[in-house]
Amino acid sequence: MNAFDLTEDQHDCLQELINVAMGQASDQLARYLDTFVYLKVPSIEQVKAEHLFDTLNNDLKATAVVSQGFFGYEGIRGEALLMYQPQDSNRLADLLGYEADELTFDEQIIDLSSILTTTFLNVFASQIDNQMSYSAPRLLSSSLDKINQHLKQQSFNWDFALKVRISYQVTDYSFNCDMVLLIPEEAITNIKTVIDRILADF
């Protein structure tokens, strides 16, 4: 068992923290798109750094990846990637209904991703008595090299990735988006400490 493995109870606790965070992020998404969003149970997967690119490779038919750094207290920090599949970003374009004189699609998808990421992480953080600040969101080219390069420029070494597959079904449209949280080792250790504190209360 390595430092990143969660026990069944820890996983259940993390899943519930994520459910609550996702619920509020979806509420923001619904308001932004002025529609109703149907939620499914998100799937959580832990990926070790050296395997991330193997799994990303399969996913990287993605046309859009929006990256945003987050920084909390007690060394809880990381980088959030929101990844959209090509067919989904086309649907998103329809859904956002962008027009030439308004924001570009790129600007809209950055906005949308930032709303999801910051709401999600704010609610997640508040549940563990933490508070986050964020770097500016960036739209990355979907080429693996570019993403790799971007991640290498980060000021921390991340060892652990938490992949949360979030599926939003929006009335006539449905799209999936993967949120990948890249978290350095000391941060995941801190998160586990917090989870154990919550579990100890029960």
């Binding site: 459910n19 619920g23 509420d27 109703f36």
Partner: peptide, 8 residues
Amino acid sequence: SADVQPEM
């Protein structure tokens, strides 16, 4: 529920 959308 965590799904707090007014429509829900």
